[in-house]
């Protein structure tokens, strides 16, 4: 391996050796955070960051791992948010069941949108998804009977189980968000480290070569599309209950670009990057309020500097650690070590 002595390698070694301790420290910080902070405002921002982490993880499956750039994921966020909110407000459905309905609907829409559009790629796909995002916004704006048009939906209730209501003030919403972020992260990690993840990354690099390896490219692209729709809808549903009010403009093009910016800034095709990306891009407008309208200049400067000096994203490095072999594999290999070596022996695939 190259770069044995680099700072990155030292860091990765350190993390690998102290996994348990670091995980415990991190867990304690996250769990105690609301008590230490004690500020409603900061807690609300934290929950918002959490929902954007979920959104970014969703888009990351599509853009980071499969290499398909979508400019319309606000559409899926809207589907999740509207379905969840409407079911809870109008029909008093439990939030979690409504959320499930929202992500299911988004998943189906993802498949339906994916089937015809994934035959095109690159810029063309981006334009189609851009159109999709606008269409969903227009539907939300004009389908008055269901979505209440431009007036939006007010008084979205907080999630509750058996009388316990998850709000910001009793920290419930914060822990609920942590729970969903962990679930989504674990799901993504499991997905990436499997044949599905490898297939997606193969498609990202070279579709033809992937096909020649027997990978059904269209099917995997639709899978990626639909999974990313599901996560964005999940993030959308949670976001809606956090802010308590949604209208069509909550889900405009800015949201799509914000999610994409998080993915790019953090590091496409990494999970760690989604956290840092969301923290920077969601917290930045809050901490830079004193800059007033110059905030967006700062935004632009950050992105330009990024593109110039670190196009792979802040945390977008390739691991320098060796490929992890399970205990079982290691034992098997040690047994056969004496027989095999590098000479030409019998082949494994026969």
């Amino acid at each position: 391996m190259k770069g044995k002595n680099t700072l990155l390698h030292q860091y990765e070694l350190f993390v690998d050796h102290n996994k348990l301790i670091l995980a415990i420290i991190l867990a304690v910080i996250i769990l105690l955070f609301p008590f230490v902070i004690g500020s409603q405002y900061l807690l609300t921002v934290s929950v918002k960051i959490g929902s954007y982490v979920i959104l970014a993880m969703g888009l990351n499956i599509l853009t980071g791992y499969t290499g398909l750039v979508s400019l319309g994921h606000a559409g899926f966020v809207a589907i999740g948010a509207y379905t969840t909110s409407l079911l809870t407000v109008r029909y008093n459905v439990n939030f979690f069941i409504a959320l499930l309905a929202g992500i299911t609907l988004a998943g189906i829409v993802g498949i339906l949108l994916g089937m015809p559009t994934l035959r095109v790629s690159g810029t063309y796909l981006s334009i189609i998804t851009l159109g999709f995002g606008e269409i969903i916004k227009m539907i939300a704006m004009n389908w008055n009977a269901v979505t209440n048009g431009t007036l939006g939906i007010k008084n979205i209730p907080k999630p509750s189980i058996g009388g316990f209501s998850f709000t910001v003030s009793n920290y419930g919403l914060y822990y609920l968000m942590i729970f969903f972020v962990i679930v989504v992260s674990c799901f993504c990690l499991a997905l990436v480290r499997s044949k599905t993840g490898r297939a997606l990354m193969a498609i990202r690099t070279d579709e033809l070569a992937a096909t020649m390896m027997g990978i059904n490219v269209t099917r995997y692209k639709i899978l990626a599309f639909s999974l990313s729709a599901i996560f964005c809808a999940l993030g959308g549903g949670l976001y809606a209950t956090l802010i308590g009010y949604i209208d069509p403009n909550t889900f405009n093009f800015d949201v799509s670009t914000m999610i994409l910016s998080i993915v790019i800034l953090g590091g496409m095709g990494t999970l760690r990057g989604m956290f840092i990306g969301a923290i920077i891009l969601i917290a930045l407008p809050e901490v830079s309020r004193f800059l007033m309208e110059y905030r967006f200049v700062l935004y632009g400067v950050i992105l330009v500097v990024m593109m110039r000096f670190r196009p792979q994203g802040i945390l977008g490095w390739r691991s320098t650690m060796p490929f992890k072999l399970s205990k079982h594999v290691q034992n098997e290999l040690n047994d056969t070590d004496l027989i095999h070596q590098t000479h030409v022996g019998e082949l494994a695939y026969e």
Binding site: P322, F323, L325, H328, V329, T336, H340, T342, V344
Partner: peptide, 22 residues
């Protein structure tokens, strides 16, 4: 997954690419 990793390592060994595995 273990099976496939094992087969992959064996294949790489048999063609002399195992030192490049990672």
């Amino acid at each position: 997954e273990d099976d496939k990793v094992l087969q992959a390592v064996k294949l790489l060994r048999s063609i002399g690419l195992d030192h490049r595995r990672d």
